[in-house]
Each structure stands twice: as structure tokens, then as C-alpha cells.
Design a binder for these strands. Structure first.
Length: 546
RNA sequence: GGCCCCAUCGUCUAGUCGGGUCCAGGACAUCGGCCUUUCACGCCGACGACGCGGGUUCAAAUCCCGCUGGGGUCACCA
């Protein structure tokens, strides 16, 4: 190592004396993955922290599975996350192209170079022979490793057969003795015995490289200083180290991140966990909250802050703080963090975000404040939206609440559903609301309280009746705010409908009364049994004795 | 199975490098309570972990060894 390359360190991570350059290298073979965003976050933050560059490189050497649609979706999703790259296939840069499918000659040249130096060789083994060898090795209880059949082939003969158009691949000639130490910055040196490492295929028979060759060549040519990638790669790193050595290049610093996990601790997978970034975007997760959440996985801020921005994350980044245990991707916590971010938004910003999410400006501003404290995700506003759209609302499941005065009479161990009194209350309220000059929550509160006083009922009782009348259910946003957002016309329509219903259902009250009285009796019986159970020191089981 | 990595509350983690202030702190979830026009938000409280066994040491969550457990990896996929 020359003096100019003598590394200094940043909190234990070696930093070469040249610009820090890191990369994210997704394979465009499917949905944009949360793991990609996770690794991209740490790469981007590391680059920014050290005034370096963050590169996006598309690893599309698998012709069968790569698609342009997938590539576009990945780029879009990473942008949604706010993880913008400095160089990439769409923005260009000095060391492009940034799509491996456009760099094939480069890999072929380099593979040839390794053949010339005796560090790689052509292999003409058929898939069938490979299968047989594999089967034999398995039967003998051995690991699968290429048996070196073509390893000793005369390079001149190999070249000639290749020239004659014979199908072949190029393999790495891995040393058969000694060991390779992978210098992982978080784990120290990880030792591998060379004889256990396979003669990896570097160039496939279609002329395209495998990941191993392409990533080493590109990382070198793109002057990557730090490879921050998932731990699943650590076992193939000795091959990469061997390649750097064969080329005579200095390897980058390796930093292997823990793998994201499903709830059962296995590697995160779409079978067991939503892994598509689209899922989170369309579920109403805020990108800044998503990134905040990713920053909690396998990592914590030095001051244990729970809520932070990308900028704060970058500012405080210290890769040595990474925990190596694989973190479970906990949707509950993501939801919580998202809720915190939503509630921290200004009223204007929140209504803009909701409007953008539901594609309706007016609805957005109407709903935002009603839903703010009830939302963990933007999608939760849908629940509120239903409250303020439409002339009718279904309250059949909660119609008992439409009767006022009932609660106060429970003390007399009977429930009276007074339809007449309830209707008088609603009609009085309707009249007061019709007379209002201004339709706003303050005026609405005033007339509501007046109506309650006039009816001589409890405030909670009267409010609940109106709440169910307009929302169809007992748990809903603030009453005055909801009425204001609903607007006078729709509010009055819903209240009138209740008034009419009360009139039409007076004949059924006796039946309802009996039913409710039976429920009351059951309640009292339970209370008695609970008291008994407590005396006996046991637990109450509602199913027992029914 | 071979090899490799990892190991603090159910989950995310602080503390581990530089042993003592940790009978282990915070957050999510859960369960109580308060606030209150309901729900929610917010606030307060409860429950809850150093996997096990050896060793080193006056002292170990922290250092060493073994075991157990979990995960990854063993393709002409990345």
C-alpha cells in the first residue's frame, strides 16, 4: 500500500485518501424491494457523510429475468424514498454506462485478461456432466464444487475450441490451498479455506458475466471505495477478493449489513411480508417516515432519537453502531412512526399530502384535520372520507344510540326508549341549525348545547345521538368539526332522516324495550358473578354458565 | 449436512470495543389509569430480556471457551 493510500479511519471504518464512492446495484428482476431501499439508505448516507458520491448501477446480466419495467419501477421507488443518486443510467456520469448489459465487452476483455495470466480458464463441461458430477458428490455426502475437469486444459487448446465456436464458460481458477481473509469492517477478518471455495463461473456461455465478475470489474472501474451490501454476499466475498488479487487491484472496504427478517426471523420474503416499496407507498406510508423506520433497523442514533429526518440520519451516521443481529421488519412500528410523522405535519402540508393521496383537493383539505389524530397511514383517511360523503349513512347497528334520555334512566334498572322525546330533540336541533347564519364549528357547538339543555338530557347522551345520526357509529372524529366538514345540507339531511325514522318506528319500541331490558338483566347477572369470582380470587369467564 | 455470520424484554434497540455508576435504559405492541362529547391523540403507570454451562477477575450483559438456538450460503440468479 503506497503512502498516498494509507487509510485513516472514520469511527473505525477505513477511509482511503480518495473520494468516497459507494453504490447500490439492484437487479431489475421484479418489484422494487425494501431491502434495496435499506441498503441504498446506508450507502447514500455514507456517501453524503463523507462528501462522496452515491452511484446507482443496474445489474441486468441475467437476460432471462431482467426487464426495463422493473428497472423503471426501482428507480421510481428509490426516488420516492428520497434516496437520489449522483450517477446512474438515467442521470449519467463520468464512468458509465451504468447498466451492465451495456458493458459486456468490458467483462469479456477482463475475463480474457485473467485467462492470459492463468487466473481463469475456459470450461467446456456440459450442463449434463455438471449435473452428474453434482449428483455423485451429493451421493458421497460432499459439498458441490466444480471438479476441475477443465482446469488443467491447455489454454491454447481451449482458445482453439472457443474459436471453433464451441460453447463454454470461463471459470475462476481458485487456489487450492491457503486461506482468504475477508476484511469485513464490522466483523473483523472472516477466514475461508481456499480449497472450499468453488471455481466460480465468471463469464456465462451467453457471453455475459455473472455477478461476481461484473461487480468486481465495475466496482474497480467506477472507483468504488466501500461496498456496503447485504450479509447474504459475505460467503462469496473470498471469490471477489481473489479476483481483485488476480487483476492486481486494491479491493474496496467491505461492510456487510444484517439481513432484514420476517416475523419468524427468516430472510425477508414476499411470502411472509410485504416487500414491495409500492405496497408502502400505496398504503399511505410517508417516504420520510419509511426512511426513518429503515434507519431503526440494525441501527440506532447515538442519542437514541426515535424520529429523525434523512439529513439528521446522515449527520449522525456512524456505521460502527450497526447491530449485526438481523432485525425483524415490524409493520406495527412502521405504522407508529408514520403516525408521528403525519401528526408533525403542518395543517397545510397535511391536507396537501392527503389530497395528493386521494387525488381530490377539496376532500383532502376537508379530511386532513378530522383524520389527523386518527391516522397512522394516509390510507386511514378513507375511513373518515366515508363519513362526509353521501346523503345517507347507515346506523342500523347502533340505532340504540339515537334515543336520548335512556342513559339517565339506567339507574332505575330499566331502559326506556323514548322515541317522542328523542324526536323532539332532533327536531329542535334541526330548527336551530337551519336558523344558523354561519355554518362553522363554533356556531354548531352553540346550537348543539342549546338543544341538549332544552331537552334536559346529558351532554354525552345528546351528542352521541347526533354522532350516530351523522356518522353511523359511536366512534368518530370530533362532532362539531365533522358537522362543519359535512356541510349544512348533508348534515340536515342526515338528521331529518333520523327524525323520520323515529316517527315511523314508535310501534316497535315495546319490542326493543324488552330486548334491551333482557340485555340489562344479563349485564347485572354478569356483574354479580364477577363480584363472586373476585371474592373467590378466581377469574371471570363470560362464557362460563351460559 | 459442510462452511460462514449472529445472540439484551414478543418486536426494534441502548449499554458490550476501553469489565464496576445496569438487581439492565428507551421505543413499538399488550394491559391499566388520566384527559375527554365518542374514538383517537397526548400524558401517567404496569407487564416484560442479558439463551445455557464453564472459565478469567475483588467484580461480567460486557473478556475467553464450549454448548444450544437463529440466520445465511453452497446456480451458466443476483
Amino acid at each position: 500500500m503506497t503512502p498516498a493510500e494509507t487509510p485513516n479511519t472514520s469511527a473505525g471504518i477505513p477511509i482511503p485518501r480518495r473520494p468516497v464512492r459507494v453504490r447500490i446495484a439492484p437487479s431489475p428482476t421484479g418489484e422494487p424491494h425494501v431491502g434495496t431501499a435499506y441498503i441504498a439508505l446506508f450507502n447514500l448516507a455514507f456517501a453524503r457523510k463523507h462528501q462522496g458520491q452515491f452511484i446507482l448501477r443496474i445489474e441486468d446480466t441475467d437476460q432471462k429475468r431482467s426487464t426495463p419495467q422493473s428497472e423503471a419501477a426501482i428507480l421510481k421507488s428509490l426516488r420516492w424514498c428520497g434516496l437520489q443518486w449522483d450517477e446512474g443510467p438515467d442521470v449519467g456520469g463520468p464512468v458509465g454506462p451504468y447498466r451492465q448489459s451495456e458493458r459486456s465487452e468490458l467483462y469479456q476483455t477482463h475475463a480474457q485478461q485473467l485467462i492470459n495470466s492463468g487466473r481463469a480458464y475456459r470450461c467446456f463441461c456440459s450442463a449434463q456432466r455438471l449435473d452428474e458430477v453434482r449428483a455423485a458428490q451429493r451421493a458421497a455426502g460432499q459439498d458441490w464444487r466444480y471438479d476441475g475437469h477443465c482446469r488443467g486444459l491447455d489454454p491454447a487448446v481451449g482458445a482453439e475450441r472457443a474459436t471453433n465456436g464451441e460453447t463454454h464458460v470461463i471459470r475462476l481458477k481458485m487456489p487450492t490451498s491457503g486461506e482468504t481473509i475477508v476484511p469485513d469492517a464490522l466483523r473483523g477478518g472472516v477466514r475461508y479455506e481456499n480449497h472450499r471455495v468453488d471455481d466460480q463461473i465468471l463469464l456465462k456461455s451467453d457471453g455475459l458475466p455473472t455477478y461476481h465478475l461484473a461487480n468486481v470489474v465495475d466496482d474497480h472501474l467506477m472507483a468504488i471505495t466501500h461496498v456496503i451490501r447485504a450479509e447474504e454476499w459475505i460467503n462469496s466475498t473470498p471469490k471477489h477478493i481473489e479476483l481483485y488479487d488476480a487483476f492486481g487491484w486494491e479491493p474496496p472496504v467491505f461492510i456487510h449489513m444484517p439481513l432484514l427478517r420476517n416475523a419468524d426471523k427468516s430472510k425477508i420474503s414476499k411470502r411472509k411480508n410485504p416487500v414491495s416499496l409500492d405496497y408502502y407507498r400505496r398504503s399511505g406510508i410517508l417516504p420520510e417516515a419509511f426512511v426513518n423506520f429503515l434507519g431503526h433497523l440494525g441501527y440506532s442514533m447515538p442519542d437514541e432519537r426515535e424520529v429523525f429526518t434523512l439529513e439528521e440520519f446522515i449527520e449522525a451516521l456512524d456505521l460502527t453502531r450497526i447491530s449485526l443481529g438481523g432485525p425483524v421488519f415490524d409493520l406495527d412500528k412502521l405504522s407508529h412512526i408514520n403516525g408521528l410523522h403525519i401528526r408533525a405535519l403542518s395543517p397545510t402540508t397535511l391536507s396537501q399530502r392527503v389530497a395528493a393521496f386521494c387525488n381530490d383537493d377539496e376532500l383532502g383539505s376537508l379530511i386532513a384535520e378530522l383524520a389527523r389524530e386518527r391516522m397512522d397511514t394516509l390510507a386511514d383517511m378513507l375511513d373518515i372520507e366515508s363519513l362526509i360523503i353521501g346523503a345517507e349513512v347507515d346506523w342500523t347497528e347502533h340505532q340504540g344510540h339515537l334515543f336520548v334520555g335512556a342513559a339517565s334512566k339506567r339507574k332505575n334498572k330499566s331502559i326506556v326508549l323514548d322515541a317522542k322525546r328523542s324526536r323532539a330533540y332532533f327536531d329542535d336541533l334541526i330548527a336551530r341549525m337551519e336558523a344558523l347564519k354561519e355554518w362553522n364549528k363554533e356556531a354548531i357547538e352553540t346550537v348543539l348545547r342549546e338543544a341538549v339543555a332544552k331537552a334536559n338530557i346529558q351532554v354525552g347522551d345528546g351528542f352521541m345521538a347526533v354522532r350516530v345520526a351523522i356518522a353511523g357509529r359511536p366512534n368518530a372524529p370530533g362532532l362539531f368539526e365533522t358537522l362543519e366538514a359535512l356541510g349544512r345540507a348533508l348534515s340536515l339531511a342526515r338528521l331529518r332522516r333520523v327524525s323520520n325514522w323515529l316517527k315511523g318506528h314508535s310501534g316497535q319500541l315495546a319490542e326493543r324495550k324488552q330486548k334491551l331490558q333482557r340485555q340489562l338483566q344479563q349485564l347485572e347477572a354478569w356483574e354479580a358473578r364477577i363480584a363472586l369470582a373476585k371474592q373467590a380470587g378466581g377469574r371471570f369467564d363470560p362464557k362460563e354458565g351460559q
